[in-house]
């Protein structure tokens, strides 16, 4: 089943000085199936952050449409966006974006509290998520007391606790050391196997090699895509590397 459908998405920015037009997205089209794990790769300035912002309804496209489970984002009213985001999406950011005033537990529970969930329900939902991310023991600690990897797992727990239709991750391993990265990616693969749809933006080949499908974006268009097929992570890693080299040397799609 198609969960996300992006059709001919365009985004044009007008720079403040001189009014020059910058086209960040020049017509992006792709779909994501239920239960898929998709990585979007691209260099800085390729338009991947713009794409993610539009998917998250943090920004509006100039033209084109985004549909989540057949419902068009354009149809949503401005004041309902926050609720929609909370109910449908989970976010994992590069910089964790945990609130230092809350313990990890409260950080994780925050989206549920915002959704006015009953107190008893909170605990019930927290337990399995915390267990699957291996942070049960540190729930009462504060963000400044734990490592980067632990913070990111807490952030993932916060994203997952609402049981979102789509988990959006923006460079989730960007601020982590290699060991923490590997651990987080293993967790992502695991939750994907449990049926969670994930869309991850990254420029780390290692991170992308854990996905089922990799989309390459360059100069505002989807340039190429790779399917995992039966490849192992290592094989996919090799394929991604080759593709990136090809992209860098400026070759055309072969």
């Amino acid at each position: 089943m198609e969960i996300l459908k992006v059709t001919d998405l365009k985004k044009t920015y007008t720079s403040r000085l001189g009014g020059a037009q910058v086209q960040a997205l020049k017509g992006v089209t792709f779909t994501v199936e239920q239960g898929e794990y998709v990585a979007i790769m691209g260099e800085s300035g390729s338009g991947k952050t713009t794409l993610l912002n539009i998917l998250a309804a943090l920004d509006k496209p100039t033209s084109g449409s985004v549909e989540l489970e057949g419902k068009c984002l354009d149809a949503l009213k401005e004041d309902k966006l926050a609720v929609w985001r909370r109910e449908n999406l989970g976010f994992v950011f590069q910089e964790f974006n945990l609130l230092d005033t809350f313990s990890l537990k409260d950080n994780i529970l925050l989206p549920l509290v915002l959704g006015r969930t009953d107190v008893r329900e909170l605990e019930r939902r927290l337990e399995p998520v915390a267990a699957s991310l291996g942070i049960t023991d540190i729930l009462n600690k504060y963000p400044y007391e734990v490592s980067g990897g632990q913070k990111q797992r807490a952030a993932a727990a916060r994203a997952l606790i609402t049981e979102p239709k789509l988990l959006l991750a923006d460079e989730p391993t960007g601020a982590l050391d290699s060991q923490s990265s590997a651990e987080l990616l293993r967790v992502f693969s695991q939750i994907n196997r449990n049926g969670q749809t994930i869309l991850m933006v990254t420029h780390s080949t290692d991170a992308a090699s854990h996905a089922n499908r990799v989309l390459f974006i360059r100069d505002g268009v989807i340039f190429h895509q790779l399917y995992r097929g039966d490849s192992t992570n290592e094989e996919l890693y090799k394929k991604i590397s080759d593709t990136l080299t090809m992209l860098r040397t400026g070759g055309d799609r072969g």
């Binding site: 004041d79 926050a82 609720v83 109910e87 976010f91 974006n97 609130l99 925050l110 989206p111 915002l114």
Partner: peptide, 11 residues
Amino acid sequence: IMEKIGMEAQE
């Protein structure tokens, strides 16, 4: 951050 997570502006 709270807005990103889905807190409404009104809230």
